[in-house]
Simulated scan of single mutants.
Amino acid sequence: MTTEQDYLVNIQPIEKRLLALQQRHNKIKLLSLGGGTLFLVALITLFFQHEIIYSYLGLSQQLKQLHIPFSVDLVTQHSPSDYFVNLLSWLGWLILKFIVAFVGAFFVISLLKRIRFFYLRLQKFSLKIVAWLIAFIVLWSGLSYVQYDLSNDDQAAYSTLTHYDQNIQQSEIFQYLQQSNTQPAVQDYLLAQTALLHKPVDKDVATAYVSKLIQAERTDPYFLEYGFKPEQIWIMQHQLYAKSITPIAQAVEPLVVKANRWVQVSQFILIGVAGLSLIVSLILYLIALRLKGRLIRVTQHLDL
Score class of each variant (00 low, 15 high):
residue 3 T to H: 02
residue 6 D to W: 05
residue 7 Y to D: 00
residue 11 I to S: 11
residue 12 Q to W: 05
residue 13 P to C: 13
residue 19 L to W: 05
residue 45 T to P: 06
residue 45 T to W: 10
residue 51 E to Y: 08
residue 52 I to F: 12
residue 53 I to W: 05
residue 53 I to V: 09
residue 62 Q to H: 07
residue 65 Q to C: 06
residue 66 L to Q: 13
residue 77 Q to W: 00
residue 93 W to M: 14
residue 95 I to T: 04
residue 101 A to H: 07
residue 102 F to G: 07
residue 103 V to M: 08
residue 103 V to C: 14
residue 111 L to S: 09
residue 112 L to G: 13
residue 112 L to M: 15
residue 116 R to K: 13
residue 116 R to P: 02
residue 122 L to A: 09
residue 125 F to Q: 13
residue 126 S to C: 04
residue 129 I to D: 10
residue 130 V to S: 10
residue 131 A to G: 10
residue 131 A to L: 12
residue 132 W to T: 14
residue 140 W to E: 12
residue 141 S to L: 12
residue 147 Q to A: 13
residue 153 D to W: 08
residue 155 Q to H: 13
residue 155 Q to A: 11
residue 161 L to D: 03
residue 162 T to S: 03
residue 176 Y to R: 09
residue 176 Y to E: 00
residue 182 T to A: 13
residue 191 L to R: 04
residue 194 T to P: 00
residue 197 L to K: 10
residue 197 L to M: 11
residue 198 H to R: 09
residue 206 A to F: 00
residue 209 Y to Q: 06
residue 220 D to Y: 03
residue 233 I to S: 01
residue 235 I to C: 04
residue 236 M to I: 11
residue 237 Q to E: 15
residue 238 H to R: 11
residue 240 L to P: 05
residue 242 A to S: 14
residue 242 A to T: 14
residue 242 A to Q: 14
residue 251 A to V: 04
residue 251 A to P: 01
residue 256 V to D: 10
residue 259 A to C: 06
residue 259 A to G: 11
residue 260 N to P: 01
residue 260 N to K: 11
residue 267 Q to F: 09
residue 268 F to W: 05
residue 272 G to N: 08
residue 274 A to V: 05
residue 275 G to S: 08
residue 276 L to V: 12
residue 286 L to A: 07
residue 292 K to A: 06
residue 293 G to C: 07
residue 294 R to D: 08
residue 297 R to A: 15
